[in-house]
Amino acid sequence: MTNALAELLAERDWLMADGATGTNLFNMGLTSGDAPEFWNVDHPDRIEKLYQFAIDAGSDIFLTNSFGGNASRLKLHNGQDRVRELNKAAAELGRNLADKAGRKIVVAGSVGPTGDIMLPVGTLSHADAVEMFHEQAEGLKEGGADVLWLETISAPEEFRAAAEAFKLADMPWCGTMSFDTAGRTMMGLTSAGMVELAQSIENRPLAFGANCGTGASDLLRSVMGFSAQAPELPIIAKGNAGIPKYVEGHIHYDGTPELMGEYAVMARDAGATIIGGCCGTMPEHLRAMREALENTPRGDRPTLEEIATKIGPFSSDNDGTEDDGGAPKRERNRRRRG
């Protein structure tokens, strides 16, 4: 198996990932509480449509519909015995479309958190987490995924367990965490801590970064924290399309395509190499992001003030570290005054 993502990273100085999975599937009829992974078998045409959205919008990488495809999460829907089947189907649908696209596109096997809390705080052991991640990884590999894509992780212990499982599966991988608690993950990791984790782990990812979280501004601040550490690995930025709001019984993200175009350029200039969207990011957002990345020359590293002005205010005064993840002190002081 060739390492398609590594090849693209060697050829290009930025790559565009895809957008939202859940938001798009809800628009196709998925209801709250359903397991979207079942659609890989029950409604493959809808999953193909999801993938085609990303391909047509210019994405170089798209994630499979397998975020909750581990035994622990599927057990909530009596699907714990279908892990291999559902993950294989998710990857196969993507592989078929990517191979027909006429350009190099990476099929990334999405792997989300187990949903359990690991020892010593919770009850999930390292060995059991590795086993769950390995089972899912083998299904995605069998279906033809180019790379595994760990996302929305909050605990370093779970990140390490996944890395071990992916080594067992002999698959390259990327990993992102969600910094949604005043610049930290839910389990307290900072942007600087993420850099150290990604680079010190035995089976290092091809790229690392942040996804989801609060809004695009907060995610950009995490990216600034990553790049301030001068990491050896490429950085991933997958921010939400604005802030979620409850409108007429539905969750609506207020980020416009124009705003996401600004976000994409700022993410690139802040140091990200792989840039995509997370919750709320629709095909129109991706098209605007691709156009902005292609047509906007590289600029200086943005300041926190520029991010707040163009993308929106931060949800907290700092990013959870004493030195704000390495951001220049003058920027932090100006932000506090603002």
Score class of each variant (00 low, 15 high):
7 E>A: 13
9 L>V: 02
12 R>P: 06
13 D>V: 05
17 A>H: 10
18 D>H: 12
18 D>L: 09
24 N>P: 02
26 F>Q: 09
26 F>T: 03
26 F>E: 13
27 N>F: 07
32 S>G: 06
32 S>I: 12
36 P>N: 09
37 E>A: 04
37 E>S: 05
44 P>I: 11
45 D>W: 12
48 E>A: 08
49 K>V: 02
57 A>F: 05
62 F>Y: 01
62 F>I: 01
62 F>S: 00
64 T>A: 08
65 N>Y: 08
65 N>Q: 09
72 S>E: 07
73 R>L: 09
74 L>V: 03
82 R>H: 08
82 R>K: 15
83 V>I: 08
84 R>I: 13
85 E>N: 06
87 N>W: 13
87 N>H: 07
88 K>T: 05
90 A>V: 07
93 L>T: 01
96 N>Y: 10
97 L>I: 06
100 K>G: 04
101 A>T: 07
107 V>N: 09
109 G>L: 08
109 G>S: 10
112 G>A: 05
121 V>A: 04
121 V>I: 12
123 T>W: 14
126 H>D: 12
126 H>W: 04
126 H>L: 07
129 A>Q: 02
133 F>H: 00
136 Q>W: 09
136 Q>F: 07
144 G>L: 09
145 A>D: 11
149 W>Y: 05
150 L>G: 08
150 L>R: 03
150 L>T: 10
155 A>C: 11
156 P>E: 13
157 E>Q: 10
159 F>K: 01
162 A>C: 12
168 L>D: 15
169 A>N: 11
171 M>D: 09
172 P>N: 06
172 P>F: 15
174 C>Q: 13
175 G>E: 15
186 M>E: 00
193 G>R: 05
193 G>S: 00
194 M>C: 06
194 M>F: 03
195 V>N: 00
198 A>H: 06
201 I>Y: 06
203 N>M: 01
203 N>K: 05
204 R>D: 00
206 L>T: 02
207 A>H: 04
208 F>H: 02
213 G>A: 14
214 T>W: 10
221 R>N: 12
223 V>D: 08
223 V>T: 03
224 M>L: 13
225 G>T: 07
228 A>G: 14
230 A>T: 15
231 P>E: 14
234 P>R: 15
235 I>Y: 11
235 I>N: 04
238 K>I: 01
243 I>L: 14
244 P>C: 01
254 D>H: 02
254 D>L: 14
255 G>S: 04
256 T>Q: 03
256 T>S: 15
257 P>G: 04
258 E>F: 05
258 E>N: 02
260 M>F: 10
265 V>G: 06
269 D>W: 07
272 A>S: 10
276 G>C: 15
278 C>F: 04
279 C>Q: 10
280 G>E: 02
283 P>N: 12
288 A>K: 14
291 E>W: 03
292 A>F: 09
293 L>I: 06
296 T>R: 11
297 P>Y: 11
305 E>V: 05
307 I>T: 10
308 A>I: 10
311 I>S: 04
317 D>S: 15
322 E>I: 03
322 E>A: 11
325 G>Q: 14
327 A>T: 15
327 A>H: 09
329 K>G: 07
330 R>K: 11
335 R>T: 12
337 R>M: 15
